[in-house]
Amino acid sequence: MSETLLPPDIIASVDPTVENNEEDTGRLTLAYERLYEIPKTIVERFSDHIKYLDISHNKITNLDALVYFKNLTSLIADDNPITENCHLPPLPKLELLWLNRCKVASLYPWVGKLKESCPNLQYLSLMGNPAAPSYFNGGTFYEYLQYRLFVISQFPSLNHLDDRRVTEDQRLEAQRLYKRPFFERIVKPGAGIAQLVNTSVTWNAVQTKLAVLMGKDKPGNRNLLI
């Protein structure tokens, strides 16, 4: 972990021993500090009581140090070069995660590992990542819809994805579309679901197979709501 020296005002803003700091206790902002990792000083002194951490607009690619933040409920990590090779440690209390405008290019197997690390997420935002198709990065409406439903299917407690609330209709459609028997038809015959768990698959490849499979479904059974 980094030995980066932080400005005194940042240390004071999160140090519970500093007077007149009751409202800020548990919150720390390290945005725009040109960090390559979470400083060792912060981990050693404050990880036990930090609940809200903002590390946006840095150059961080590794989040392993978060394993020490046992009480973390909110993490803002926008605008970092974080890829699908970066996996969060177990954060069972994390409810809000923002990874907007990072470098996540593939949902597989990254989103499955994210689910294991953060099973209680209620708010997740991945806007601006290559793996999150939208009109802003050249994605079609259909690609965006499939991305959204797939992510919703992975997090039963999710209330908000990107810039929109998760509706009950979307949750039901996500469960129908991505239930295991259907999902296994996407991978190669005989390979099973393990192929998607252990192999990085581009979203375009999966979306193409989904389009073919859904074309075989009866129109009356499709209810792709946004």
Rank of each mutant, 00 (worst) to 15 (best):
R148N: 06
S153G: 07
A131N: 07
Y147L: 06
Q146F: 10
L161Y: 00
Y147H: 08
A131G: 12
Q146E: 04
L145T: 13
S157R: 11
N129I: 10
D162V: 02
F155L: 04
S157F: 01
P133H: 03
Y142P: 04
N137Q: 06
P130H: 07
T140D: 10
Q146K: 12
F141I: 13
D163G: 11
L145D: 01
H160Y: 15
S153E: 00
F155N: 10
V151W: 01
P130W: 06
E143N: 10
R148F: 03
L158Y: 01
Q146T: 07
T140S: 14
L158G: 06
F141T: 15
D163H: 11
D162Y: 01
G138I: 08
Q146V: 10
Q154D: 04
A131Q: 05
S134W: 00
Y135I: 13
R148M: 08
Q154Y: 02
A131C: 15
V151S: 03
L145F: 01
N159S: 14
H160I: 13
Y147R: 04
A131R: 06
F150H: 11
T140K: 07
G138P: 09
D163S: 13
P130T: 13
L145K: 15
Q146I: 14
F155Y: 07
L149K: 08
Y147E: 03
H160S: 14
F136Y: 02
N159W: 10
F150P: 02
S153A: 10
Q154P: 03
H160G: 07
N137E: 05
T140A: 10
F150T: 05
S157K: 12
N159C: 15
L149C: 10
L161D: 02
E143I: 06
S157Y: 03
Q154N: 04
E143M: 12
L158H: 06
F141C: 09
T140W: 07
F141S: 13
L158N: 09
L158S: 07
Y135G: 13
D162M: 03
L149S: 14
V151I: 12
G139V: 11
L149M: 05
Y142H: 13
S153V: 08
D162I: 01
F136L: 13
F150D: 01
Y144I: 00
Y144T: 06
F136S: 11
N137Y: 00
P133R: 08
G139F: 02
S153P: 05
S134G: 08
P156C: 03
Y147F: 11
P133D: 02
D162N: 14
L161K: 11
S134F: 00
G138W: 07
L149T: 06
Y135R: 09
N137D: 13
F136K: 06
R164H: 09
D163F: 00
R148V: 04
Q154M: 12
Q154C: 09
Y142R: 15
L161C: 10
S153D: 00
D162G: 05
Q154F: 00
S157I: 03
E143F: 05
